[in-house]
């Protein structure tokens, strides 16, 4: 798939839509990342957890995507002669699981498996994200434990580049 140059004024919304579709859709035969929910902030995660508590058949891991500082580089011209700017997208992906996800499995083992599967998905299928170039996803370096409500999470750092047409 040829990578696109975004023309959207609000590329952040577009970015979330593309990521959500990518994460929640099976990308190929070897994509073993399970069905999950997509969240953009704390409240989104909290609401999803409360909803899952009332709908036990829909218990899944949650992938929360947080936007970090994403510098925009100077204007340049692409091969078509259009003026574009490169945006260095920095994101933090949190995989969040409650104690109901794969009950009986140790949280640390479960999160490590999920992180590994998510990284494989990005490493091998990132071409399916229309605007994302030079994509890299780290592995987590620890597990975050929110004792009070039985929620565990781990963080993966995602980097990508987007080219934005200058109007």
């Amino acid at each position: 798939m040829e990578k696109l140059i975004t023309q959207a004024k609000n590329f952040i919304n577009n970015m979330h839509e593309e990521l959500q579709t990518f994460i929640m859709t099976k990308q190929g035969e070897n994509d073993d990342f399970p069905d999950s929910w997509y969240a953009i902030d704390f409240d989104d995660v909290q609401n999803t957890v409360e909803w899952m508590n009332q709908n036990p058949d829909n218990v899944r891991p949650i992938v929360q995507v947080m936007e970090l500082d994403s510098p925009v580089t100077n204007k340049t011209r692409d091969s078509q002669g259009d003026t574009v700017q490169k945006i260095n997208i920095n994101l933090a992906l949190y995989i969040v699981v409650t104690d109901k996800v794969q009950e009986g499995t140790k949280r640390k083992i479960l999160l490590n498996e999920l992180a590994s599967e998510l990284k494989y998905k990005f490493d091998n299928y990132y071409m399916n994200i229309p605007h994302f170039r030079r994509v890299s996803l780290s592995l987590p370096n620890g597990i975050l434990n929110r004792d009070s409500d039985g929620m565990y999470s781990c963080r993966l750092d995602l980097y990508a580049e987007i080219y934005k047409k200058v109007r």
Binding site: L68, D69, S70, P71, N88, N90, A92, R134, S136, D157, Y159, A160, E161
Partner: peptide, 10 residues
């Protein structure tokens, strides 16, 4: 400042 290898503010 942020090119994926080292991103200080991120």
């Amino acid at each position: 400042m942020g090119d994926g290898d080292v991103s200080v503010s991120a």
